[in-house]
Every structure is written in structure tokens, then in C-alpha cells.
Design a protein around this nucleic acid. Structure first.
Length: 217
DNA sequence: AAACTCTTCAACCGCGATATA
DNA sequence: CTATATCGCGGTTGAAGAGTT
């Protein structure tokens, strides 16, 4: 914990990089007792060698008790696509319509899962993509019962303002909706902690919260 | 089995907006 | 009114796991 990952030039007192569990606990504990806000002074008062900005981000995107992570549902996916078609990259605005989801998560989701497909459509040599697409579409027809039909999807995403229709139309169906079976937990590393409900190999937020209760002063 | 590539996502950065001194 | 601090957003990066050769 005392090594300083990539500490750039200046302040050797300021930690960067992944949060450790100790830091998480300190932050959770502090906020539980004093509330959030004024992040720079919070960071100091809590004894964290982090910027206020870093604390804020960690809290909002990860530690907050009401934050939902991973397993974006098909419904959420549709909402994201619909809202993104209206508003573009206004991630925080979009996030406000998905309770518990953070702008960061939605942004990541968009970039890694959706934009990828848009790019493929825009690609001039579409042959590969179309082949792939038909494969994926076929595949889709027999999984996930609660998955919306393609017509539903098209209707929902109908009003396209910021994107060329081709982008979405190409994107909608091939999009792999079998969501992270993965539960996201690949990759929760040493630093942590929170994870999805159905996996017990890591700290869950409930664990953390109960720890901080025990710990609480 | 190891080297290499791809994918994901937590966390960083810069910057404009807003608040406070 | 101006200067400085802080917040919040969106873009980007890089570590590390997963997949492929």
C-alpha cells in the first residue's frame, strides 16, 4: 500500500492509481460519519493521501451504497441507446435516467459494446461485418427470452438525431445482449472489494458496509 | 505452454462551469 | 468585479484478465 504507482513529478504525498481496501474503508467510514461534499477537505480530514477529485470519483462510481454495477439489462441497454440517440455523449444526463448507474459505466458500456459495432458498420469493407452480423442475429434468435424483439428495438431507437440511421440499424441486432455472464469480476484485483452479487470470491459492498459498521467510530 | 492480441473498466486528466473569498 | 478554489463532465489511458495463435 505504500508504494506509489506512477507518481508523477510533484507531490509525493498524493497517491494515485487503484484504491486499496484500506482506503475504501477509510472513505466509506468517513462519509458514513460526516457525509459527502467538499472533497478536498474531506480527503484531508479523512487522512487519505488522495485528491478530493479521486475520492469523489471513487465514491460516486464505486463505493456509494446505491450504485449498481455490471450486468446491464437489455432494458437498460435500450434506454441507453435511445437516450444516446437523442442527446449524444451526455453521459451524466443519460445516467440520471438509469438509477444506480454511473456516467462512467454507461460511457464504458457504450464505447466497448456499442460503438465498436457502429464503427464496424461505418467501415467500408462491410462484407466481414455483414457475415458476422447474420451469424450473430441467428444466434440471437435463440437466447434470452426476455430480450426485446428487433422490431421493438427499432421502434425505440427510431428518433435518431445525432447518428446516421445506418449506424444504429447496423448496431442494434448484432449487439450481443448476453451480458456479462462474467459478472464483472474478472479483473477486480487486489485493490478490491466490490463485486456482483452472485460471486463470492471478492469483497462485496455489503461486506464492506458491514465492516465499516463494525469499525465505525 | 508461452507469447501475443484483444477487451474491459477503474481511474486519470484537462477544462469549462460554478461557487466562494 | 476579479481571483482562486472546487465541482462535474467527457475523453482517454493503461493494467490486467481473457482469448487466440
Amino acid at each position: 500500500m505504500d508504494k506509489k504507482p506512477c507518481n508523477s513529478s510533484q507531490d509525493p504525498e498524493v497517491r494515485k492509481g487503484p484504491w486499496t481496501m484500506e482506503e475504501d474503508l477509510i472513505l466509506i467510514n468517513y462519509i458514513a460519519n460526516h457525509g459527502e461534499g467538499v472533497w478536498n477537505s474531506l480527503a484531508k480530514a479523512a487522512g487519505l493521501k488522495r485528491t478530493g477529485k479521486s475520492c469523489r470519483l471513487r465514491w460516486l462510481n464505486y463505493l456509494r451504497p446505491d450504485v449498481r454495477r455490471g450486468n446491464i439489462t437489455p432494458e437498460e441497454q435500450l434506454l441507453i441507446m435511445e437516450l444516446h440517440s437523442k442527446w449524444g455523449n451526455r453521459w451524466s444526463k443519460i445516467a440520471k435516467h438509469l438509477p444506480g448507474r454511473t456516467d462512467n459505466e454507461i460511457k464504458n458500456f457504450w464505447r466497448t459494446r456499442i460503438q465498436k459495432h457502429i464503427k464496424q458498420v461505418d467501415n467500408p469493407n462491410q462484407q466481414n461485418f455483414q457475415q458476422k452480423m447474420s451469424l450473430e442475429i441467428n444466434d440471437h434468435h435463440h437466447h434470452h427470452p426476455h430480450q426485446p424483439s428487433s422490431s421493438q428495438v427499432s421502434n425505440l431507437v427510431e428518433p435518431m438525431e445525432t447518428y446516421s440511421p445506418t449506424s444504429y440499424q447496423g448496431t442494434l441486432e448484432p449487439f450481443p445482449t448476453q451480458f456479462p455472464t462474467i459478472n464483472n469480476d474478472h479483473h477486480q484485483n487486489s485493490n478490491c472489494c466490490a463485486n456482483d452479487n452472485n460471486n463470492n470470491n471478492y469483497w462485496s459492498m455489503e461486506d464492506i458496509w458491514s465492516m465499516q459498521l463494525l469499525n465505525g467510530d
